[in-house]
Amino acid sequence: MSQSRLLSVLVENKPGVLQRVASMIRRRGFNIDSLSVGPTEDETVSRMTIAVHVGRQQAEQATKQLAKLVDVITIDDITGLRNVAHELVLLRMHAPPGERTELLNMVEIFRGRVVDVAASTIIAEVTGSTEKIDNFIDLMRPYGIKELARSGAVALVRGDQARIRVLDFANGDDDRGAVPQAPAGAAGDQMGNV
């Protein structure tokens, strides 16, 4: 079954790292929903937040292949953990004077703000979960979206723990964590029982 997984990846802040990650993902045929990259509190480290749409076994492959890249420091699979995953959208809306109030109300409901006003258009900015952004865009569509830019998700895990779970494949954690499906006829002998 295919699902969206959210990976929070710390990488060396070096030239070419984004290309290495993108190249591996393309070569192995994984589908990226979004990828965002930016600096962290440590200037030698960047954080990539990667949303991939993959099956369970493929997710494990993607994570393991990422972990093999020399410039990748840690990978947190934060799917399903208590996390804050936000993205930002900028929307340029067709907004003739007669329709503006209604539009502004919608932006307000989504706790967004208007960051640019021109004679016949406005630019609205909304942040929040991917689902919220999707909803906002759907609701705006009938009014006439002229241009749209989305940042892709950035995420952190909630609470005091900076990192909840690092996938430490190098130390053989694979069998205890994401348990791969056993081949047919062997369901009683999952590795997790070892």
Partner: peptide
């Protein structure tokens, strides 16, 4: 020795990264 080879083509019941 390569964890990425475990489960890539054939899914084992027990694996050892070493």
């Amino acid at each position: 020795i390569d964890p990425a080879e475990i489960g890539k083509n054939v899914v084992p019941h027990i694996s050892l990264v070493a």
